[in-house]
Amino acid sequence: MDRTKIDLWVGIFVALGAAALLGLAMKVGNLTSSKIGETYNVTAAYENIGSLKRHAPVKSAGVVVGRVNDIIFNTERYEAVVTLAIDKRYDFPADTFANIYTAGLLGEQYVGLEAGGDEVMLKEGDKIAKTQDAVVLEKMISQFLFSKASESESKDVAPVAVEAKVKSTELGDPPF
């Protein structure tokens, strides 16, 4: 095997490897979508974050604009405080909604930002006031069952329907 042929093959080999690695990073991995440079942190409090995890994406209009940086439990108010690291390129109004959504029926959870109309923009350390909890499947189902029950029972037994109404307000706003 002469030397130039070896050089050529090794060159091809290394180039293939580099291409594969680049392909993995760009096409398979989230290198392109997660190019988040400088960020600023804002917090948002939730009563229930579902299964939101660190590094979960923060999206606005479907575009990834940041990551969940930290999740802590506040023992004073018994709520979860989520720190969002948002790309400095994107400014959001102070009255932006930060809702927890689920990607698909069983997909991972992410934070969705819906811009409000305020003139003042969010800055480092701010707290987002308008939040909406994660949808918990069991709650949804029980709500659904109660409303079904109230529908059918309201015709003959009124008090049960009242009780069901009370319960459903306890659970917060229905998610849909």
């Binding site: 290198l31 979508s33 997660s34 994406p57 990607a103």
Partner: peptide, 19 residues
């Protein structure tokens, strides 16, 4: 196929660790 993949494969956690 590709978008779900890109959303869930982390360059540092998955690809780097594999490497």
């Amino acid at each position: 196929f590709w978008s779900q993949m890109q959303a869930n494969v982390d360059v540092r956690l998955d690809i780097m660790n594999g490497l």
